[in-house]
């Protein structure tokens, strides 16, 4: 039962990663693409981490997975903001 649930979570996570990549390819401009990447990847990794945590059920491993999720979130939010800001500044000054 837990295995099934954990597999479903991982699959859903992969689905959102796929969505993020499709968005990256289909969306027309830099800002919209950043939307797809930040949001879909956050949820994708979150589901992946939830699935793996359920699978391992070892406290230290679960904590480590959570730490990885937080680190990736911080990095992706910060880099998305920096990319958007840089693009925006070039647009408005040139």
């Amino acid at each position: 039962m837990i295995d099934v649930l954990s597999a479903l979570l991982v699959l859903a996570g992969v689905g959102f990663y796929l969505t993020g990549s499709i968005g990256l390819l289909r969306l027309p401009d830099l800002y919209s693409r950043l939307h797809a990447l930040t949001k879909a990847d956050n949820l994708g990794l979150g589901l992946l981490v939830a699935g793996l945590a359920l699978h391992s059920q070892e406290l230290l491993t679960v904590l480590k997975l959570l730490l990885i999720w937080l680190a990736v979130l911080a990095a992706s939010a910060a880099s998305a903001h920096l990319i958007a800001r840089h693009a925006r500044r070039q647009e408005t000054t040139s």
């Binding site: 939010a77 903001h81 958007a84 800001r85």
Partner: peptide, 16 residues
Amino acid sequence: LVNCISLLPGTLVSNL
């Protein structure tokens, strides 16, 4: 706040 706004549906902070 700025980092979390990118998580809300359809919003992304582009400048401060």
